[in-house]
């Protein structure tokens, strides 16, 4: 029991912070990455039933523009994590939608498990799965199209921007691995 509480003490050192150029590149990357997806959402398809921008993209931006070297930020994880989680989220809503609390919990938990099992763990994937359950009527009515719009479309755009921006930066290299 004492070892159980001992674990909560931490005891390890926190990692060092990053320099100014790293902060600047993170800002530039995220700005350029979110811009095209947001333009699709607000300027090109604003009157339609389509959704392009979802909250989990903000989380992906943290990883692919802010923690470029992280295994969680690599293309396999970015694309695989979102797509797999989107499928699971939509399925959870369609099967368990009558009990939204269960659909929400099941979607996130299953998404994490599936991402782990497929070596595609990408934290924003949990949000993508959750959004499929708690999203607007617009999202619900998309059905499995949700996997293509907004999820895959936005992910491919953000990945493309990451490949450009992160490799222009002299101190960065992206990706560490593709698959």
């Amino acid at each position: 029991m004492s070892s159980f509480f001992k674990k909560m003490k931490g005891g390890s050192q926190s990692p060092p912070g990053v320099g100014f150029s790293e902060i600047a590149w993170s800002w530039v990357g995220a700005f350029l990455g979110i811009t095209p997806v947001a333009l699709l959402q607000y300027n090109f398809f604003s009157d339609g039933d389509l959704v392009f921008l979802i909250g989990s993209f903000g989380a992906s931006a943290v990883l692919i523009y802010g923690a470029v070297r992280s295994p969680l930020a690599q293309p396999r994880n970015l694309v695989g994590g979102h797509v797999i989680s989107a499928v699971i989220g939509v399925a959870a809503w369609q099967v368990l939608g009558s009990a939204p609390w269960l659909a929400a919990a099941f979607a996130v938990a299953t998404a994490i498990a599936a991402m782990h099992a497929t070596k595609t763990l990408h934290p924003p994937g949990g949000a993508t799965a959750l959004i499929a359950v708690i999203g607007s009527e617009k999202i619900h009515s998309l059905g499995f199209l949700y996997v293509l719009f907004p999820v895959l479309t936005g992910v491919v755009i953000m990945l493309t921007v990451a490949l450009f921006v992160n490799n222009i930066a002299g101190s960065r290299k992206y990706p560490e691995f593709w698959w």
Binding site: S12, Q13, S14, P15, P16, V18, G19, S21, E22, G66, A67, V68, R69, S70, P71, L72, A73, S171, R172
Partner: peptide
């Protein structure tokens, strides 16, 4: 920690 500071970019690990 010194090595982590020397390597540019955010390293997603603790010491």
């Amino acid at each position: 920690v010194v090595a982590m500071k020397k390597i540019p970019g955010y390293l997603d690990i603790t010491p």
